[in-house]
Amino acid sequence: MTIGIIGSGALGASFARLLAKAGLSATISNSRGPASLADLVNELRPTIKAGSVEEAASADIVLVAVRWVDAEKVLGSLPAWDGRIVIDGTNPVAFFDPATSPDAQDASNPLAAYGIKAVDLGGKHSSQIIGQYVPGARVVKAFNHNDVNVLNEPDVAGGKRVLFYAGDDAAAKAEVRAIMEAAGFIAVDLGALDVGGPLTSLPFGPLSTHNFIRM
């Protein structure tokens, strides 16, 4: 089993650290190229290496950890997925500067003061959209529902932190669950993408931002 990571921001880097701590190997990538990842790779060697987006996308399991506004551009240029597993770690939110953007004055947006707004998906949930960008992939929604910093803290107050996942392919979900459990988390299956995906999607999913600990 090989693992790729597309995106080296907060989620991508935290996921790489999670894998390295668990002794799992992966190729991480970003739009700026492998050289820009030298510091992270030096920190996490020998299990984590840098590669191109195409190299990361060729892995058996690929975490998509890019900003929502970049997802179509990044994923749309990649080769066929041929049944490989895509972990959809995205959330349909857009970011803006609350000090300068007119969006900060939007009274209908409860998150305006934080520089975040939900993206209108026209009645679809985020994994439906991502699925369109990765035709032929087996999509599992995971690693998106909480602050990325919790990926460094599976053990909390004598218990284990809970991570949620959802998908339509049982074998693909089992592979993602194995990664979660290898990293020390309690993995909870929320069922199909159409059910579990919306439950955990930021910013308004009922299970998003909640920290659950199994004692």
Rank of each mutant, 00 (worst) to 15 (best):
Y114V: 12
L78A: 07
D168G: 09
F143Y: 15
G158Q: 11
G89L: 03
L193K: 09
S201G: 06
V74W: 08
I130N: 00
L199F: 12
D103H: 14
V66G: 10
V86M: 00
A171G: 00
N109V: 13
P135M: 04
I61L: 15
R214N: 10
K124C: 00
A38T: 12
V162H: 07
I28K: 03
A178Y: 05
V195R: 11
H125S: 13
G76L: 06
F95T: 05
T47C: 02
W81M: 05
A171T: 09
D82P: 04
T100E: 08
S29K: 04
L75W: 13
P79E: 08
L78N: 04
P154S: 10
K73L: 08
T90N: 13
G167D: 00
R161N: 08
G7V: 06
T27L: 02
F185I: 10
I3N: 06
A104T: 07
D39A: 15
P203D: 07
K49H: 02
A56W: 01
G131M: 04
I5F: 13
V66A: 09
I6C: 05
D97V: 11
A65W: 10
H125T: 14
P198F: 09
S127A: 13
P135L: 06
H125K: 06
G4E: 01
T47Y: 05
A94V: 10
E175D: 01
D106S: 09
I213H: 06
A99D: 13
A192S: 14
K117R: 15
P110W: 01
D168P: 12
D168V: 11
V188G: 02
P135F: 04
D155Y: 11
A113G: 15
A187V: 12
N109D: 13
A50E: 01
L75E: 12
A104S: 14
R17Y: 07
A113Q: 15
A112M: 04
A171E: 11
N42F: 03
P154M: 07
V150E: 14
A107W: 01
S77R: 15
D168K: 10
H125V: 08
N146E: 12
E55Q: 08
P154W: 11
V156R: 12
